[in-house]
Simulated assay, not measured.
Amino acid sequence: MNETRSVRIEPGGDGFVARFTAMASPCEVLVDGADRTELRRLGELAAAEVWRIEQHWSRYLPGNIVDRINRAQGAAITVDAETARFLDYAQQLHELSEGLFDVTSGVLRRAWRFDGSDRVPTPSQIEALLPLVGWQKLHWQSPQLQMPAGMEIDFGGIGKEYAVDRACALLAAQTSHAVLVNCGGDLAASGPRAQGQDWRVGIDSGLGASSSLIRLRQGGVATSGDAHRFLLKDGQRYPHILNPRTGWPVPGGPRSVTVAGSSCTEAGVLSTLAMLQGEQAEHFLQQFSGDFQVIW
């Protein structure tokens, strides 16, 4: 069996944890009070759901719906019901964020390679790509999507968080035990542990700052930051989260933002939007209920 498509049951915490790999991230499933047999069953269900979503929407995999949309060259594409709901959500986020959250901005990766080097693109390279960015340039009338040739959609900003929420909800319907699903540090919990105990979630920004704990009873946690994806030139650091209006990172922003919200998807959106607020990141998050951590 391909290692990337296997589920391993390993010691972890005060019991066992189911581990697998998806979306280029280590993933794990914890089921409070489950025996090893039930943990394996639930871990395999969670992994199958995350792998399904990855196969369906990853921009790296040929032949899926995202690939067909991005290769349509101006033709209208009819999408499935789940993708239609996701596109509706993307449209809502674009409107609510006044254009800061835009699933068409992935095309900017043609100029940006966040590999820790000093290869910062030129202004002319960015300017050449901006005509290919902008949700308002698409024609979306469910279930048909049509966009100008050369444009692309990329669900990378919300796909992993959605997969976490879906897997967590799937397992919650299969067991009376509390469940926590974690993919690369983005996670969701179905409810409190036995005797009403919170899940204790360690937050490590990867930036050398001391780790801290978030106590989570139910909902999701997500982190956005530039610990691993950035460029550094002439003493200036360029984080990987780009403003779709300008094609450039927002100056003066935090290095890392972690948010606990009602779902992993919500937490992921808020952490990304906070990064895009630059120096106003903390002020932005204070508008919302839930815990957050901002590291500058």
Results as ranks from 00 to 15, higher is better:
residue 44 E to L: 05
residue 77 I to P: 00
residue 171 L to R: 06
residue 57 W to N: 01
residue 150 G to W: 03
residue 102 D to E: 09
residue 275 M to P: 07
residue 120 V to Y: 04
residue 86 F to K: 02
residue 198 D to V: 09
residue 104 T to V: 06
residue 16 F to K: 10
residue 283 H to S: 13
residue 248 W to F: 15
residue 71 R to Q: 12
residue 107 V to K: 04
residue 249 P to G: 14
residue 171 L to I: 06
residue 30 L to F: 02
residue 155 F to G: 08
residue 289 S to K: 10
residue 269 V to D: 06
residue 250 V to W: 08
residue 261 G to L: 05
residue 152 E to V: 05
residue 285 L to Q: 14
residue 128 A to Y: 03
residue 274 A to W: 07
residue 200 R to E: 12
residue 242 L to C: 08
residue 272 T to C: 08
residue 46 A to W: 07
residue 43 G to L: 01
residue 39 L to V: 03
residue 192 P to G: 11
residue 184 G to K: 06
residue 251 P to C: 03
residue 55 Q to A: 15
residue 23 M to Q: 10
residue 159 G to R: 04
residue 212 S to F: 08
residue 254 P to M: 13
residue 258 T to H: 05
residue 93 L to S: 07
residue 93 L to M: 11
residue 224 S to A: 12
residue 48 A to P: 10
residue 166 R to G: 09
residue 38 E to L: 10
residue 65 I to A: 12
residue 77 I to R: 08
residue 61 L to C: 03
residue 286 Q to C: 07
residue 98 E to W: 12
residue 254 P to W: 10
residue 242 L to D: 12
residue 81 A to M: 11
residue 172 A to H: 05
residue 110 R to L: 00
residue 189 A to R: 12
residue 263 S to N: 11
residue 41 R to F: 15
residue 145 L to V: 14
residue 82 E to T: 14
residue 283 H to Q: 09
residue 221 V to N: 07
residue 27 C to V: 04
residue 185 G to I: 05
residue 283 H to E: 06
residue 32 D to F: 00
residue 195 Q to I: 08
residue 45 L to H: 11
residue 124 S to D: 13
residue 54 E to M: 11
residue 51 W to A: 13
residue 182 N to F: 08
residue 138 L to P: 03
residue 296 W to I: 02
residue 101 F to P: 07
residue 25 S to A: 09
residue 33 G to Q: 11
residue 29 V to R: 07
residue 95 E to V: 00
residue 162 Y to V: 15
residue 101 F to K: 02
residue 227 A to F: 15
residue 225 G to P: 12
